[in-house]
């Protein structure tokens, strides 16, 4: 499949939005750069996942993770982590799918900006899914185990988002190790709790985020991203102890 890459400048452009609705993008030469990309197959998956209940959300994320793992991860990262590629693919090849799946796109340009030409960063569902699929499929070979890890991510989305938001945490091994530790300790819901009565803390007052913030503050004096899981786990429990009682966890470590 050949995809022409859009020229920058299409984002937040009302004319472009109108031409998308009118299906006229392909006719207008000025929207395109002189670059094209060839990809074997580019099946659709949930490009946008929000405002759903937990169960629906899990199904959609799993579909996204699995589709990306199967069809996109063997391409160069210059492609599957590139904003212009994804936007070009969505606009030029997935228009019908988008209009059908996310009819709110037609309601206004804000929705279009938020769903279709969304900035390709940690808030973008494609971006989240690509990193999840890459990290887990690179480290877990067993198929059932892999699905289990995908579910761990979905169950700890707040923590996962926090880790891929900040570059200090955004590495395959660290993300994987933290997810494993959370799963082993069974503290998923504990980490989501808000900390009360600590006026000295900033806005991110969920326990999980605060524990990660300790890793951030101490880096690189403590080079946590390079640490093996068991070593990391000791520190994790120590930092967790700053914010909650860890006496029952002690037995698990």
């Amino acid at each position: 499949m050949e995809i022409r890459i859009l020229e920058k400048g299409y984002k937040k452009n009302p004319e472009f939005y109108q031409d998308f609705l009118d299906d006229k993008i392909a006719d207008k030469e000025e929207y395109f750069s002189d670059e094209t990309v060839n990809i074997q197959s580019a099946p659709e998956f949930p490009f946008y996942i929000a405002k759903k209940n937990d169960e629906q959300r899990k199904v959609l994320f799993l579909e996204a993770f699995n589709t990306i793992e199967k069809y996109y991860l063997s391409s160069d990262r210059d492609l599957h982590l590139d904003e212009q590629f994804w936007h070009s693919l969505l606009i030029l090849k997935k228009r019908d799918f988008l209009l059908e799946t996310y009819p709110e796109i037609q309601e206004g340009i804000e929705n279009f900006n938020n769903i279709v030409v969304k900035d390709f960063d940690w808030e973008n569902y494609i971006y989240k899914s690509v990193l999840a699929a890459e990290y887990i499929s690179d480290l877990v070979t067993d198929e059932t185990e892999r699905q289990r890890y995908y579910e761990i991510i979905i169950d700890n989305l707040d923590l996962y988002n926090y880790m891929i938001k900040y570059e200090v945490f955004r590495s395959k091994q660290f993300v994987f190790n933290i997810l494993t530790i959370v799963d082993e300790l069974g503290i998923s819901s504990l980490l989501k709790k808000k900390i009360v009565g600590r006026s000295d803390l900033a806005t991110d007052t969920r326990i999980g985020r605060q524990v990660l913030f300790e890793f951030n503050k101490n880096y690189p004096v403590i080079m946590s991203p390079m640490m093996a899981k068991e070593e990391l786990k000791e520190l994790f429990v120590e930092y967790l102890g700053y914010y909650t009682s860890v006496e029952q966890l002690g037995a698990l470590v």
């Binding site: 991860l73 063997s74 391409s75 160069d76 990262r77 210059d78 982590l81 590139d82 990193l131 890459e134 690179d138 891929i164 570059e167 955004r170 590495s171 395959k172 091994q173 991203p225 390079m226």
Partner: peptide, 27 residues
């Protein structure tokens, strides 16, 4: 460090590190 961070333990003899194009973007 590009889109994310990769760590490679190197020893005193390491002359280069190869990273597959599927896992690093340089654009």
């Amino acid at each position: 460090q590009s889109k994310d961070n990769k760590f490679f333990e190197v020893d005193l003899n390491t002359m280069f590190i190869d990273i597959p194009k599927t896992r690093i973007s340089i654009n």
